[in-house]
């Protein structure tokens, strides 16, 4: 079966033949299946942002191919917009793109560009707003009156409203307070669960990635360093720290305990850790 989204040796070079020449992505080949929830991690400048922008045709690869449902997305450059509706992209600090008079109109911008009928546009926009947890009374307000977290959610709704097959989020939780972060992450996971769509989630927070992703793509110095299940990737703490990345704190603690000889396994979340540790306490931790 052809994967939903695939890259074949994609390479991207910025400002070729000048002193500023930079190889941002160097022959990367990955396969993304329908329904995947992939966390993308890597240092600043490792090529994550360039890679994800090539996936929806915002950056044209210098060489190599990006295949959507087995077809090269640059086969017909005039049809590239259709690709962008299928592969939705939420940039870092997406609230900077809000421009309409009301929040609802702003969310409708994407679906309107798709040329859908009016009722369908509004239905999708309201659905998307509901998904990200924006209350109805906010929809008629100006986007510039909203709080930071609400703006962020409105901007994400603007992409979800296009109902893309693949949703790419670049650092969606950056700069939010812990509560806003929790709300956002859980609305993204529930979006993934209910619609069954593919999600790519770029983040610097290993905790967030461990919590939501099924698979993790590690980028380093324009190359793919690792690509595997979340457990596989985070069990290689040594290799990750060599490229300046860390594993979640709870995973670190549990791996130290494992090294000390306790019968525990690689653990990604606090809940799993509690479930493993409680039975090890005297009386199974009943007196706690």
């Amino acid at each position: 079966m052809t994967p939903l989204l695939e890259t074949k040796n994609v390479t991207c070079v910025y400002s070729p033949h000048t002193p500023f020449e930079k190889r941002a992505v160097d022959s990367v080949s990955i396969k993304i299946e329908k329904g995947d929830f992939i966390g993308v991690i890597g240092h600043t400048g490792s090529g994550k942002s360039t890679l994800i922008q090539m996936l929806n045709g915002l950056i044209r690869p210098t060489s190599g191919q990006v295949l959507l449902n087995g077809r090269d997305i640059w086969e017909n450059p005039k049809k590239i917009r259709a690709v962008r509706f299928k592969v939705g992209m939420v940039f870092q600090y997406p609230e900077d793109q809000l421009f309409e008079e009301t929040v609802l109109k702003d969310i409708m911008f994407g679906p309107r560009n798709m040329g859908l009928p009016d009722e369908e546009i509004e239905r999708r926009a309201r659905d998307a707003a509901h998904f990200v947890g924006l209350p109805d009374e906010l929809l008629e307000r100006s986007p510039f009156e909203l709080s930071g977290g609400e703006k962020r959610r409105a901007a994400i709704a603007g992409v979800i409203a296009m109902d893309p097959d693949v949703l790419i989020l670049d650092e969606p939780a950056a700069g939010l307070d812990p509560a806003g972060r929790d709300v956002l992450l859980s609305s993204i996971t529930s979006y993934h669960r209910t619609r069954g769509n593919t999600v790519l989630f770029v983040s610097h927070s290993m905790e967030d990635v461990a919590r939501v992703a099924d698979r993790v793509l590690v980028m380093n110095d324009a190359h793919v360093e690792m690509f595997g299940t979340t457990k596989e990737v985070f069990s290689q703490a040594g290799r990750l720290s060599q490229i300046g990345l860390q594993v979640p704190q709870i995973t670190q603690i549990m791996s130290i305990l494992k090294d000390e000889g306790y019968p525990v396994e690689t653990t990604l979340t606090l809940e799993e850790a509690v479930a493993q540790l409680l039975p090890l306490l005297p009386k199974g931790g009943d007196d706690l």
């Binding site: 929806n56 917009r81 962008r84 940039f91 997406p94 900077d96 793109q97 911008f109 994407g110 992409v159």
Partner: peptide
Amino acid sequence: IMAAQKARGADMESGGLMQRIKALVP
């Protein structure tokens, strides 16, 4: 910002003069 609006399907490369000016508003 152009990349973000293009990702939402904004079309800035085609259409007549008026359409192009309108496309710049976002």
